[in-house]
Design a protein around this nucleic acid. Structure first.
Length: 562
RNA sequence: GCGCCCGUAGCGUAGUUGGAUAACGCGCAGCCCUCCGAAGGCUGAGAUCGGGGGUUCGAAUCCCUCCGGGCGCACCA
């Protein structure tokens, strides 16, 4: 094969080679066993001696062939060598073993992937824009306090998904619902008003179910700064209304600042109240009525949720005429389902019981399967051995900002995204700031810093030369392993989107760092021989880009030194 | 009681559209710095994948059942 870097444009990449192989095998299967339905899937074998890829296609042919899988695999491989030698030449080895066909790519293919990454950078991982529309909602909360820890996890997961989706060519619309229409906001208004009065009259009663947090008193002071004595003698309902509105505006602004500090941007902050006032809720409910899916009972309006698998019908409008939270959610999901191809909600663990209802309404509106609901599981905060108490009742909530003050954005985002979304998470604040091998964030960031350090030491002249160097010296197992890992990025990113599994990004970043460290240990990068040195520097450049991209998808910085 | 999630090495987890001798990190026992960042690398011990049945050429993965944990079951949000 020609040198990979010289003709990066027309080089054969790993996926191309596998596609060619699959096509050739299908032809062989059609010739050898007419009428079969061969499916050629690839997997990464657990054990390195089983190759870089393996296919179990022979198993799907045993019936048509009336032969054992190993015999079929052997026949397929022999036939492929005979009729498609050019495909066979893309592989260093093609071995039928126990019915599997184990594959190892020719080094030139891996070298071509490295060259492509060096040349294209992020574009290597990108998919062309195809315009599939995704609505992604996460973090949404009552505007009754600062962002707390569990929401931080939802933000970390949701934003990583959004970034990865954009990379893969989706049109993502990220939204936050401000739940400012319900009774909880009114209670916040009452709490705030009481604190406001307490500034001058310490004996003024605080509501029994009020919000105890210190931030409410802060709000009271700010309200007093803005409005002075104005609410001392006004009618109480007016005061509570004004206090609630003030609190809502202040707290939403604060939540937004926290989200941005965390590196998360929303396309839309949607007020629930506005949904009601603009008639959009009414429109959604009207649609349900048209579909004959509502009924009235004891003065309340019900949705026939049981028709869609829910265990009971749900109230949309209470007997006193006030709409429920679910009512607004129904209407808003109706909108989202019509304007997006995939609608994704990331909810907190306390909304577990809500999933069925949401799926029910998606089905009711005629879009079953278009809605996906993720639960960002519970977070337990630790500081070493000691559990950090965060009882909301007692007002000891731990805010996201406090966490960021203590351990920083990088560690927080990485830890929150590290485990599968539905796995409960223990977050150790002490560990998160520790600069030790127990701390996965530092391991990955250190890997990046180490690469940059080598590039720095190599000098600009060599680094520039490396960008266009021939890569055929890259044949060492550690070099091939690292190249193979880097080449996984596009498919990995795609799987993150399809399976809504952003934790894979964190694991992948760790694997890349690990493969780099191993390569670093086994191969001297700044070798005497110029050809070898330049090829290895190119591999470093590629590894650095891939690490930086993976970390960026997670919202974590890739430092040049640390 | 009903529903959802979970049970994988001492600990924390990945793997769950079925694939070969079950993977990663920590911890544990050792080893590797005259040399590019040791915040690193290597070797080893450690698992009847909660139990039992079933489907399959093949099950951690699919079905049934039991046990053990978490959460939810409001005309709250």
């Amino acid at each position: 094969m020609e040198s990979a870097a010289v003709d990066a444009e027309h080089a054969v990449l790993p996926d191309d080679a596998l596609r060619s192989f699959a096509d050739a095998i299908r032809e062989s299967a059609a010739g050898l066993y007419p009428g079969n339905d061969a499916t050629v899937g690839f997997e990464a074998p657990r054990r390195p001696e089983f190759g870089e890829f393996a296919t179990n296609v022979a198993f799907s042919l045993v019936r048509a062939a009336r032969r054992g899988p190993q015999e079929v695999a052997q026949a397929l491989v022999a036939d492929l060598h005979a009729r498609a030698p050019r495909v066979a030449a893309l592989f260093a080895s093609i071995e039928p073993v126990a019915g599997f066909i184990n594959l190892r790519l020719a080094p030139a293919i891996w070298q071509a992937a490295v060259a492509r990454i060096v040349r294209d950078g992020e574009a290597f991982a990108r998919a062309s824009h195809h315009g599939t529309r995704i609505s992604l909602e996460f973090g949404s909360a009552n505007p009754t306090g600062p962002l707390v820890v569990v929401q931080g996890r939802a933000l970390s997961i949701g934003d990583a998904l959004a970034r990865t989706m954009r990379l893969r060519g989706y049109d993502v619309f990220v939204e936050w619902i401000i739940n400012d229409a319900g009774g909880q906001l009114e209670m916040l208004g009452r709490s705030l008003f009481a604190r406001y009065r307490q500034l001058t009259d310490p004996n003024y009663p605080f509501p029994e179910e009020g919000y105890p947090g210190e931030y409410v008193t802060d709000l009271a002071r700010r309200l007093r700064e803005r409005d002075g004595e104005r609410w001392m003698n006004a009618p109480e309902s007016e005061c509570i209304e004004a206090a609630a509105r003030f609190a809502r505006d202040e707290l939403v602004a604060e939540q937004r600042r926290s989200a941005e500090r965390f590196g998360v941007r929303y396309d839309l902050w949607q007020s629930e109240r506005e949904l009601h006032e603009s008639g959009r809720v009414a429109a959604g409910i009207e649609r349900l009525k048209e579909l004959g899916l509502t009924y009235e009972e004891e003065g309340a309006l019900f949705f026939r949720a049981t028709r869609f698998g829910d265990d009971k019908d749900r109230v949309l409008v209470r007997s006193d005429g006030r709409p429920t939270y679910y009512c607004a959610d129904v209407a808003y999901h109706y909108e989202k389902l019509r304007r997006a191809d995939r609608v994704i909600d990331i909810l907190g663990p306390d909304h577990h019981g809500y999933i069925g209802r949401l799926h029910g309404l998606a089905a009711a509106f005629g879009y079953p399967g278009r809605l996906e609901v993720l639960i960002a599981q519970h977070v337990t905060l630790m500081r070493g051995e000691e559990q950090v108490s965060m009882s909301k009742r007692a007002g000891q909530l731990v805010t996201l900002d406090e966490i960021l003050d203590e351990v920083g954005v990088d560690a927080t985002r990485f830890f929150f995204a590290m485990l599968a979304t539905d796995t409960p998470l223990t977050f150790d604040l002490k560990l998160a700031v520790e600069q030790s091998n127990d701390n996965p964030v530092y391991y990955v960031q250190y890997g990046h810093a180490r690469i940059v350090s080598v590039l720095r030491k190599a000098g600009d002249a060599d680094v520039e030369a490396a960008r266009v160097a021939a890569l055929d010296p890259l044949v060492h197992p550690a070099e091939i392993a690292l190249a193979g890992r880097l080449a996984e990025l596009p498919n990995l990113a795609q799987s993150v989107v399809e399976q809504l599994a952003p934790h894979r990004l964190a694991r992948y970043a760790r694997d890349v760092a690990s493969d780099f460290h191993q390569f670093y240990t086994e191969c001297r990068i700044l070798a005497e021989e110029r050809e070898v040195r330049l090829a290895r520097l190119a591999l470093c450049l590629a590894a650095q880009r891939v690490l930086a991209i993976s970390l960026d998808l997670l919202g974590v910085k890739a430092p040049d030194s640390m």
